[in-house]
């Protein structure tokens, strides 16, 4: 009896868009925006603040979307869309106590929709350059295990996949995970348990068949 909200990827009506853009491009706390030169300076300052924001979160968002979609190009495209939206609403988002939660929510919404549009629930196989990673003790074995993870994740419904990755890989709490996918903390706990059980069963099947 619960449904979760996702981001519409369609243009807003013009009047709303105009108000949003006006809100975004205007910093009420900056009186220097009255002149073009001052406006440019303010724009530079905003960009600098956004770059700092981007640097803080970019690695987590791109890797999260890569894990969600299994495809580097899709992850790149969705990451770009996520941060473009963040830039549009940066005045609001930067005032949030946890702007990262907003980013994960938008990224999740975009990923779920991208996965729905795909015929296959997960994208192309992971790249083979993991073999050359010096940080791995047994690259060949790790590659096999990575493939098990990828195949096991493929079995999970997209939302369950998001729950599991957000909790296990990025360490979000049940409350934070629930906030991202639109569930209460208790419901998120239950859904997370189910997702983990599904992943466990699928992962074991992969190991047995290997």
């Amino acid at each position: 009896m619960i449904w979760w909200t996702l981001a519409p990827n369609r243009p807003l009506p013009r009047d709303v868009l105009a108000r949003l853009l006006a809100t975004i491009s205007r910093d009420p706390s900056d009186p220097t925006q009255a002149t073009p030169r001052a406006s440019a300076q303010a724009s530079d300052a905003t960009q600098a603040r956004f770059e700092e924001f981007f640097t803080t979160y970019a690695s987590r968002i791109t890797s999260y979307l890569w894990r969600m979609t299994g495809d580097q190009q899709t992850a790149f495209d969705l990451s770009q869309e996520t941060f473009l939206r963040a830039w549009q609403h940066f005045a609001q988002i930067s005032a949030y106590p946890q702007p990262g939660a907003w980013l994960f929510r938008v990224a999740t919404n975009l990923a779920l929709n991208a996965l729905r549009r795909q015929a296959s629930p997960i994208g192309t196989p992971l790249v083979l350059d993991d073999l050359t990673d010096p940080g791995r003790s047994d690259p060949a074995q790790r590659l096999v295990e990575d493939d098990h993870v990828r195949q096991a994740l493929r079995v999970l419904p997209p939302r369950a996949r998001a729950l599991l990755i957000l909790r296990e890989v990025y360490g979000l709490s049940c409350a934070e995970v629930g906030q991202v996918v639109g569930l209460s903390p208790i419901a998120a706990k239950t859904a997370l348990f189910r997702a983990r059980e599904q992943f466990r069963a699928a992962y074991l099947r992969q190991e047995e068949s290997a």
């Binding site: 640097t55 791109t62 790149f76 990451s79 350059d129 993991d130 940080g135 295990e145 296990e168």
Partner: peptide, 17 residues
């Protein structure tokens, strides 16, 4: 299982992004 999920190393695309 948690370690397995964290194991795959994502490509670095931050600069290009």
């Amino acid at each position: 299982l948690g370690r397995a999920l964290r194991q795959p190393r994502p490509p670095d695309m931050v600069d290009a992004l």
